[in-house]
Design a protein around this nucleic acid. Structure first.
Lengths: 185, 185, 185, 185
DNA sequence: GATGAATGAGCATTCATTCAT
DNA sequence: AATGAATGAATGCTCATTCAT
């Protein structure tokens, strides 16, 4: 009667693959060989492909969690009383949250042309709202687009990843960015 | 038997390789195949390896020139009358100069490994002077280190390259950065 | 515990697999992945293997039906009044019947290996009768054996499949074959 | 002064690869793994790719020799006095020449849609001339196109390959084909 | 010294077959 | 018995590096 007879195993494996992928992608970005991920997950390469049709798909799935949380947060702040505060709070959350996310950097690459544009659509939309409200409220310089903003964030991720564990670096980098984004007086 | 000026030949080859490498790396970053560089230089792959033990070594060498010029420029500005102006002028030169320098981005990377940390020593020193003078003059926020600054520049390069030919993006990004670097009023 | 008519279920499954295999093989030949057949049949790959030890075995089984029908037809015509007409009518039926039978082509292949030589024994026998009667009646050239004939039919199938949907091609090819088979005058 | 210093080696290898490819393709058609060819040639896979950019290219090259000879022969016969004899002589040469050519069969596949259409262009042209002259001379049935003819030849190759070494089979098959092609009286 | 040919490990992806549930 | 998940060997192709000439 229980209607998940052996799915349990598959789900376990799927999650192991996903976990391995998240870890690997977070640490090294898209360049991790898929076989490596399979090995870390303790499964054959074929198993990875059973769950994810493509390396790209695996990557998107590995990112999805993070992006969804971030997006949800952005949406919440969309209706905040103080658009300026909301905007900067969001950025702080995004940029300073977890560890160094090489994968997020790769995810945001999209613009250039090829990769996981899919994933970030909603996030981009929410961020656009956040940004324009903050601009209308006079809290953020008006000459900046969402694209610009994403590029800047991307840059911070990439650079911060490369810079490794330098203490306080992300915070200071973030401070420069936010100050640069405020309406110049 | 013939006693030709071999050294001259060798030097010429080295320079052709270097030039080809610079061009190729600037356009596409580290990912250019070495064979491609050899072909563009009109030499065999073996010749590249005679002069540079490794693709990495070639890359560092290809960057060196640029970095040296930039460094020289930084040193010149070190004694300028207006430290604030000098500082920002330098940044503008660095960030907005030629096309998208994918190689510089790649060059400023790599601390996880071991890469061009070597290369940029002198540049870093000159930039340190430029920065601290500008800070002492009250033109630049005091909570920023040279490392922070390099990270930020790196980020702009990487992100801008990925963003491709988006018009005005580098300029706006640059504006955010500079405004963020100024002493907050 | 439940004592369901398992055999019936199994038989149903076997037939669904077979039907799916026939359809798939007819359309694309041996190259269809077994998983695809399982999916079309609505069963798991394991089930396919329970009924057929090997992809090859499944293929032979999938062909068997058709071959048996063809064989039956051949046997019927064996006693026809006009052996010449019977022979050519049979060929027409065989070659021009349904769509392009990629599977029949693949079936008639494979002697290099070991394949359906098995399958076609009876067909070959019936066809032999048909042929020799037609030859004795003076309607078909006498220098041709059943093996030759099968090879020629095989060739038409293979070539026609590769040629795709070229209109009229099978008909013209067939015409050449039949004219070539008639007693030369 | 001799201006082929080490080309000798390369040429030798290229030829070994080509020879291995010809043998392998002739025996098994396009399906032979490229690595297998490399192994038979005693070289690494990379070496094969140095000489031929693609498996397809290697295949075309392996066929080229044969096709060129055949084409040359066809062209010669284009101006023969007796178009009918010329046509059938050509077919005989083509179909009965060497051993079983699985590769030629694959080469003629083109129609279906994807493969080495390139190679056979000239052959097709020459054959077209041969055919239409023979048709105008009343030696060959008028309802047949070059495409039909190529399909038929293709079929004979494929079928003959599958039929293996059956003695006289190709000859009899060929006889049926030629008789079927003659103007019916 | 230079050449460019050869190597071979590496990569993403597919698929027949096996096996735990 | 059935399921469908897992396996792992293949496959076409790329590229840093080595080496015979």
């Amino acid at each position: 009667m229980t209607d998940r007879p052996l799915r349990a195993d598959a789900r376990r494996n799927r999650e192991r693959v996903l976990a391995a992928a998240q870890e690997a992608f977070a640490a090294e970005g898209l360049s991790v060989p898929l076989d490596e991920i399979a090995r870390r997950a303790g499964v054959g390469a074929g198993t990875v492909y059973r769950h994810f049709p493509t390396k790209e798909a695996l990557f998107e799935a590995a990112i999805l969690d993070q992006v969804e949380k971030i997006t949800a947060h952005a949406r919440d702040l969309t209706t905040a009383d103080d658009p300026g505060t909301a905007f900067f709070e969001f950025l702080e959350q995004l940029v300073l949250q977890g560890g160094v996310k090489r994968d997020l950097a790769d995810a945001l690459r999209a613009n250039g042309g090829d990769y996981p544009r899919t994933v970030s659509r909603d996030l981009e939309a929410a961020l656009a709202t956040l940004l324009s409200r903050a601009q209308q409220a006079g809290a953020v310089r008006p000459d900046i687009s969402v694209g610009d903003l994403l590029t800047i964030i991307k840059g911070i991720f990439l650079a911060a990843h490369d810079a490794g564990a330098t203490p306080g670096l992300r915070e200071r980098t973030f401070a420069v960015m936010t100050d640069g984004l405020r309406t110049s007086r």
